[in-house]
Design a protein around this nucleic acid. Structure first.
Lengths: 335, 335
DNA sequence: TCCTGGCACTCGGACTCGACGAGTGCTAAT
DNA sequence: ATTAGCACTCGTCGAGTCCGAGTGCCAGGA
């Protein structure tokens, strides 16, 4: 059956192109022996693959390179690859002695960028609703104060608020005591009503509303979603396969949190173990020459880790690394 | 006096090269009229400037470009340029409604990268010693706890510690009460001895030492120094002037906090209003094609903001922007 | 002493040309 | 269905050529 062999030809083209970064021709494939047929046969298969849109030739007289569709087909037929032992060990030692959430995320993103030699992306875990454990207020000058909310799931949110008008030390201290008594241990709707009542009390300090608002949003799961990345230099490294002009837009997209976040959300929605977007599949002009491999982690698999690189990348290896880091991250985040 | 005119020639070469990105020849300068002498005269001046090592020609038959030394001489003779009004307004609006320290730093770095169209770098303010305001401990699972230290200067440090062995809820709560009573309001050496005594008390929980250590370092001015950057895409943007191969090392250096920090420290030590390192002056191979313009901000002018770009950059404009952002940052950070 | 016009010279960039070879598609034979 | 053979395409590489920007130097003038 030639259908079977055509898949093998495609696989060989992808692998060849990924490793050499040069179009691969029928003769080279025939010489590699792994297919056991002559170059002419391979040429015929290539013609069909080209008709199907899976491969293309940059010039009339050059070998073939996979199209986005070709990579897609290749990836879809891929069995889960094992991660090299050395990498497994690296993950263990790297992440084991992280010191807080920031540190975990920071280490993960560095690690993943080193394992994959690509740009690693980690979305901060979106945290679920949690109870308020303690609210601290610190005066900063006469007109501002810092609100610190420590939540029961070990998160710390902070924000400065304007006091509006002069507040005496006495009423400041009283407000701190009261808001703690009011909020401690509460969650969600009960927390919200309790704080609303507190803020509306007669004689209340004028900035009570601001404090209440912030405490509620903090308890609701933190402030804003964020993405951090590392390994941007891998994009620019010689032989990355991105043409000179294409890397600036990619860097822009990475710094443009919003765009990236939307893409990651879309990918999370697919619900696969490891989700892959290839080239134009990202629907982003800036990323049309790159692919993203991402996996969910954390409670409810609600956040994503990923690696971004040229479409011409080592999919099996990257997928294995991303999958592994996501697993370890899940473990760490869920305690 | 021809010395005077030679400076003007150098200035014209720098400005011409910066704006056109092409070597500038004697004829072009003579045609520009601003010097009022013939091309032959300019050629003579150029010969001298070249002997002095201030300019060089890439090929025998091309115009001249400034050397690192040339830029240095140019920069040293520079009067402080004014910042465009539009930029001033941008700074005001951008930074005015920041929500906490992170936000301030984040906004600043973005802003600066946009103003200068270069990579902006901001070192987190290194904070002075401060008194402990409140210590919060939150259990995380059976074996770990999160320590949160709120300092009197509105900083929040956090870290997880291992509990070592099972601790009863009672003794946990007692430890929290005690450590707060012990540490509140103290600073420096007195804080340290008080906590050491507390941790060494008989019947003390085994992890008291770890808590004490962390509280002391937190009060001493925070955990680790950090640098954030933004605008990396400006490096890769067409016409940035960096050759394809040179940008990967630069990105690496940026991600390599340590190296960058050392450089910034060196620059801070110079104590100028705005400090400039040009090309090889950075003493970093990776940055040998780039310049850094930095200014101190914050209490004791202890931290730095800067912009990093190709040696062929608009020094007056960049210096003005960096200076302005540093001023505003100082205001905000000092409250 | 300093500036200028003129002139010969250099050398990199762009362009052309031709040889080469990798790779292809097609066809006829197995 | 596969293969060997063959004519053909087209991009790359090197050599050769031309052009012009830019230079250094010199002799003459203020």
């Amino acid at each position: 059956m030639s259908e079977e062999r055509r898949r093998a030809v495609l696989r060989a083209i992808v692998e060849g192109y990924v490793s050499t970064h040069e179009p691969v021709g029928s003769k080279a494939l025939a010489d590699a022996q792994s297919l056991g047929v002559s170059s002419a046969t391979i040429r015929n298969d290539m013609a069909i693959l080209e008709e199907e849109g899976l491969i293309a030739q940059p010039h009339t007289s050059a070998g073939r390179i996979p199209t986005d569709l070709g990579y897609r087909s290749f990836v879809d037929q891929l069995a889960a690859a094992a991660l090299p032992d050395a990498h497994k060990r690296a993950i263990g030692t790297f992440l084991s002695d992280a010191v807080d959430l920031n540190d975990v995320v920071e280490r993960s993103v560095r690690l993943l960028s080193q394992l994959t030699r690509q740009v690693a992306v980690v979305q901060y875990p979106s945290l679920r609703e949690s109870a308020v454990r303690r609210i601290e207020l610190v005066r900063m000058g006469a007109e501002h104060a810092l609100v610190v909310v420590v939540s029961s799931d070990a998160r710390v949110d902070q924000r400065t608020i304007a006091l509006g008008e002069a507040t005496s030390d006495d009423s400041f201290e009283r407000a701190v005591r009261e808001v703690n008594l009011t909020a401690e241990g509460l969650t969600g709707a009960r927390l919200e009503t309790a704080l609303t009542v507190w803020a509306a009390a007669p004689d209340q300090v004028p900035w009570a509303g601001a404090v209440a608002d912030f405490v509620v949003t903090a308890a609701r799961g933190g402030t804003v979603e964020r993405v951090v990345f590392a390994g941007a230099s891998n994009l620019a490294r010689a032989g990355s396969g991105l043409e000179a002009g294409t890397i600036a837009p990619v860097l822009e997209a990475l710094e443009e949190q919003v765009v990236l976040l939307r893409l990651l959300h879309e990918m999370a929605a697919e619900g696969d173990d490891v989700s892959v977007r290839i080239g134009a599949e990202t629907h982003l002009e800036a990323l049309s020459r790159t692919s993203i491999v991402a996996a969910a982690y954390g409670r409810d698999a609600s956040s994503l880790v990923g690696a971004l690189g040229p479409t011409r990348m080592d999919y099996p290896g990257t997928m294995a690394a991303v999958r592994a880091v996501a697993r370890y991250l899940s473990k760490v985040v869920e305690h």
